[in-house]
Design a protein around this nucleic acid. Structure first.
Lengths: 354, 354
DNA sequence: CCATGAATTGACAGCGTTGTCATATTGGGT
DNA sequence: ACCCAATATGACAACGCTGTCAATTCATGG
């Protein structure tokens, strides 16, 4: 921390050698440190002239407030946590990007906290982390964002949180989500419009709300087109690649006449591709395959995967905004619950049914 | 921060309602706060009996030191940064996991800092981040770990760093690396042993040292087997999927008789797979393809990609250990430069030459 | 021109630690 | 027993900032 500054950035700033403190700024501006503090924190009741003068001094001595001192005095840490399930790198990388993009500008730093999959045994682990990390708030992604026990715990210790999650009807805290149902509906309709009548579906992890919504969208689209939604056409997966392989084998055995398979995420769709390859089914000629998420892998598979793009980065940024504005005690200048649109990305893995 | 504790964890700890401070511990143990501080920080000159007593008190009132106060008083932040290039999610997720695994236990928290690709324009951005974030040290991954200008900057401000990087011969700071040359040599030899004589190679990003080492390993293996290392067999890539596609097209045009292609990483290998698919070349029957990294995607492609596994997590954990021990001012109890082994992972994308 | 309340500014006491230095306390060596 | 060094412990002042509240300035109406 008390490090030397890089020398001679802008022709040797006046006081620019050592990390300057609020006192230096105050002296330079000829005001009290409290006034500097007011300007830094955008507090009201500072005349425009004063604000200008102070900001100028801040710039001149390259002042950056000391996080520790701020935290100590103000009982805040300016640290927010991101809880997520280990794995799932593409998704989480994008979440991180979104959160960082917003938080940094707001003077908050991000502490990432990958945990094992949500079950009893991680709860104590989470408790410990929360206690040590000194967080001002956290951002939750699925499955954590839907895990009642965890939410109860956070509510209990009054740790503010915002969530990225599937649509749900609790009223616990702000959240941001996508319309999984609608997107699955549209994707299914897209396949139907391509002439497919027997469309298989691989469900996601039963614990994730998104899995149910996506499945419901699929069923609704079939119904809307007067197609039968037979259980033979559906297999259970858990959003993992291997579960996609297993489910598609099962599906292909139960219903060898399917001409298309809609996997609830891209990893499972990759599993379907693998199985199709093993069984000498050409994709998309013999079998159309579509996924969900538009993960990194979707464009790298061959054929490129037709899928649904989640605006993950934006979801994360909005969740951050929600969290930070609530940390600031600001009135909800944003709606506490937001629904973002999903976009179908057409690549090469689905084609007209023969 | 000054939050209530979760109620009634272990039958209502004695003083456990509010976050307790060092004073509470001192009172409970009947000693001065300084002594508590000594115990917490593992300082010498504390009798065993005293240490026990204090540790017991700490446990009884569930004490966790306040990060901000520690930072302020000790001029440390207990925050370490991880700088990396945006993109490349699989690799970076594993790096994060490795760093976290080590740092958390040591009482350090991780601040992640993705930046655009290293060029002049990110340097100021990095400077700003360093200044605001209050880091005690940073961990660098390629390309940043090999970027002289950045290292100069960090040296200039005396910010300690440790690196994950390709082998290099500077003596600037500790680093951890893998033997890219050797692994590439062995992989090439593996292909040669499968009977391949015309083996194409796709180079990585010229700025990364690993790219040169991998290429050198390939060339050396060919030479060792008395095969010609013709320039026709080599194409330039930049570690991206699209560059893999482009390079393999070029390669296949220049040297239509290649029976195997060694791509310098898995993303580019995925690009090769895509092009092979487009050109109706069956992999591995018509063309063997191998990659490097064992990224997430390697096992999800079809066919599964034969590649080289980097112990990324371990690399990151060791770099963290190096950094933290230097932050503590400990004598180098570890070698400042470490070389980790690489392992060939055989899947289904390479087979005996016809 | 003065009184009044609102807006602006400042003085100062913490916040919870660690660093420094002074003060016990201990264990040998005579 | 007695002295000295070494070891253990404690008192207290920072660290750089924010919160509180008092002091000052300003605008307004009488």
């Amino acid at each position: 921390m008390s490090r030397k500054k890089a020398g001679g950035e802008t022709g040797d700033a006046p006081q620019g050698e050592i990390n300057s403190t609020i006192k230096d700024v105050a002296r330079l501006a000829g005001v009290s440190i409290k006034t500097v503090s007011r300007v830094v924190n955008n507090e009201p009741n500072v005349t425009e002239a004063m604000r200008k003068k102070v900001q100028d001094a801040i710039r001149r001595c390259d002042y950056v407030p000391n996080r520790s001192a701020r935290g100590l005095a103000g009982r805040k840490s300016f640290l927010i946590g991101l809880f997520y399930e280990r794995q799932n790198s593409s998704y989480i990388t994008r979440i991180q990007a979104g959160v960082l993009a917003y938080c940094r500008n707001q003077g908050y730093e991000l502490l990432i906290h990958p945990f094992g999959s949500g079950n009893e045994s991680v709860l104590p682990e989470i408790e410990k982390v929360v206690q040590r990390s000194n967080l001002d708030g956290v951002i939750l992604t699925p499955f954590f964002s839907e895990w009642t026990q965890l939410l109860d715990f956070l509510d209990g210790i009054k740790l503010p949180y915002a969530r990225v999650t599937a649509v749900l009807d609790d009223h616990r805290s702000p959240f941001v989500s996508c319309d999984d149902f609608d997107a699955a509906f549209r994707m299914t309709k897209y396949l139907i419009d391509l002439g497919h009548k027997r469309i298989g579906f691989i469900k996601g992890h039963p614990r994730h709300n998104s899995a149910a919504h996506r499945h419901a969208g699929y069923v609704a689209a079939l119904k809307a087109a007067n197609l039968v939604a037979s259980p033979d056409l559906v297999a259970q997966g858990d959003y993992s690649f291997t579960s996609g392989e297993a489910a598609s084998r099962l599906l292909l055995d139960k219903a060898p006449d399917v001409t298309a398979i809609f996997a609830s995420n891209d990893d499972m769709a990759a599993g379907v591709l693998r199985v199709a390859h093993q069984r000498k089914l050409a994709v998309p000629d013999d079998l159309s395959v579509v996924g969900f998420d538009d993960a990194d892998i979707a464009r790298k598979l061959c054929p490129g995967l037709t899928t649904i793009r989640q605006p993950v980065r934006d979801l994360a940024a909005r969740a951050s905004a929600l969290l930070i504005s609530s940390l600031r005690g600001e009135a909800q200048d944003q709606q506490p619950q937001q629904l973002l649109p999903l976009e179908i990305i057409i690549r090469d893995s689905a084609s007209r049914a023969k």
